[in-house]
Design a protein around this nucleic acid. Structure first.
Length: 425
DNA sequence: TGTTGGGCACGTCTACAGGT
DNA sequence: ACCTGTAGACGTGCCCAACA
């Protein structure tokens, strides 16, 4: 039961048991005519409305009216309970209570706390140390073997609050400016790096999140659930990875993966990965731009979904920045392609063809409708190399996209989760 | 008349500081 | 983990207006 509800624990449990019926009734649009008629009656029978007090009778005008008012209020509260406790179940995913949510935004410091940050080390620490020593010694000399009632922290905080109160207006303004700037800087400033960092943290929470969501859906519907999620991973230079979470087993006890078998299972995921590549690779974004200008601004491609931009650039012998890996569509022609793979999949052949066609279309469109200068991507931006990061100890093993890998590269078979219902690749 | 969403008031919870 | 005081965040109940 949530804190401070009008309902008792017993009432709350009773209401909870009728949630499903309410949702069902809501879908049938019979809440008022069927559901609530019965539910408020039952509630009042179970927990009769207490008799009206003298004050309530006086206020209402008569005992009858007072009781009526109390009943109405009670009924209304019951109705509202259902609205307040069921209608937002789905929408709560994504709010601050969502599993995926990151650490909440830091709160603004109090003015004296800002003063503490600005002046403690520089000015007051030695003073507080002396104060604490004096206080402690005095207390201990008077009260043997007893701890002082105030801790050093308490003493320090009290002292800093007093000092802040006594400080001049100029210092107070500095404190105010500090606490505001700190608050502002703590909120994601909208930079790409910050955003990618936030993405990465959320991605690392995904296995647990998918498991929770899957279990929840499964519990509520009695169905089995498969959730596939994937996209560029910022701490792997935007490499596309896929998570698959599955609940439920066949009657023979097979998981979804075992049921499909390794080959079919990979094919199953490959389709999704194709979709991801089509969604996140740069030229595909450009093609979207042909239909919608904002797609360009959105910059939804793997190259931009990377935390390690500045550190991963490598320079080839010709002195030009060179890109290895998946998301270098613009730069890969001729020799680089040969270098990557001698045997291309159907998908890659088709993609190469698509790229050529798209480039032609794009050139025509650019001639017809020149891109506004302020919307053009930065010229200084260079493709980034993709230095392979060694997997950290204890890091979650995920499925790296297999599509880009040529035959020369062994498919890295990752350990598939058996213990939990989250299958990680 | 019932439903829905927005907003307000109020109470409770949480983060934050640095040292032990 | 704990200490303290408090601003800010959040949950809940309630009210009201708009709409069907």
């Amino acid at each position: 039961m949530p804190r401070n509800s009008w309902a008792t624990e017993e009432q709350w449990d009773w209401l909870e048991t009728h949630k499903a019926a309410f949702i069902e009734s809501k879908q049938k649009e019979t809440t008022s005519k069927v559901f609530f008629l019965a539910i408020v009656k039952e509630f009042r029978e179970k927990w009769p409305v207490p008799p009206a007090t003298d004050a309530e009778i006086t206020e209402a005008g008569s005992a009858e009216l007072a009781v009526k008012a109390k009943c109405t209020k009670c009924d209304k509260r019951v109705r509202e309970w259902f609205h307040n406790n069921t209608c937002n179940v789905a929408s709560k995913i994504g709010t601050a209570t969502s599993v995926l949510d990151l650490k909440p935004k830091p709160k603004m410091l109090q003015a004296w706390q800002a003063y503490h940050v600005l002046r403690y080390e520089k000015q007051w620490k030695p003073h507080i140390d002396r104060l604490w020593e004096t206080y402690k010694t005095e207390w201990e000399s008077k009260n043997l073997d007893e701890k002082p009632p105030k801790s050093r922290l308490q003493l320090m905080n009290e002292f800093m609050r007093e000092q802040y109160k006594a400080t001049d207006e100029d210092m107070k303004k500095q404190c105010e400016a500090y606490r505001r700037s700190r608050k502002e800087s703590s909120v994601a400033p909208g930079s790409e790096a910050e955003r990618n960092l936030q993405f990465q943290i959320a991605i690392e929470l995904l296995p647990r999140t998918l498991e929770t969501i899957g279990e929840s859906i499964s519990q509520k519907t009695g169905w089995y659930v498969t959730i596939i999620a994937g996209g560029p991973t910022p701490n792997s230079n935007g490499m596309i990875m896929t998570y698959l979470s599955h609940t439920g087993q066949t009657k023979e006890g097979d998981t979804f993966e075992k049921f499909l078998g390794p080959k079919q299972y990979d094919e199953y995921l490959l389709d999704f990965e194709k979709f991801l590549h089509a969604s996140f690779c740069k030229l595909w974004v450009i093609s979207l731009w042909l239909h919608k200008l904002t797609s360009w601004i959105a910059k939804v491609d793997c190259e931009l979904r990377c935390i390690l931009h500045s550190e991963t650039e490598t320079v080839d012998t010709s002195g030009k920045a060179q890109v290895e890996g998946a998301d270098d569509d613009e730069g890969k022609t001729g020799s680089s392609n040969k270098k990557r793979s001698a045997v291309q999949s159907d998908y890659e052949l088709r993609k190469e063809k698509n790229i050529k066609e798209l480039k032609m279309v794009l050139n025509r469109v650019k001639e017809m409708y020149p891109m506004p200068k302020d919307l053009e991507p930065s010229q200084t931006k260079k493709p980034k190399s993709r230095k392979k990061q060694p997997a950290e100890k204890g890091q979650v093993v995920r499925r790296e996209s297999q599509r880009r890998k040529g035959k020369e590269q062994e498919l890295t078979r990752c350990v598939r989760g058996v213990v939990t219902n989250v299958t990680e690749h």
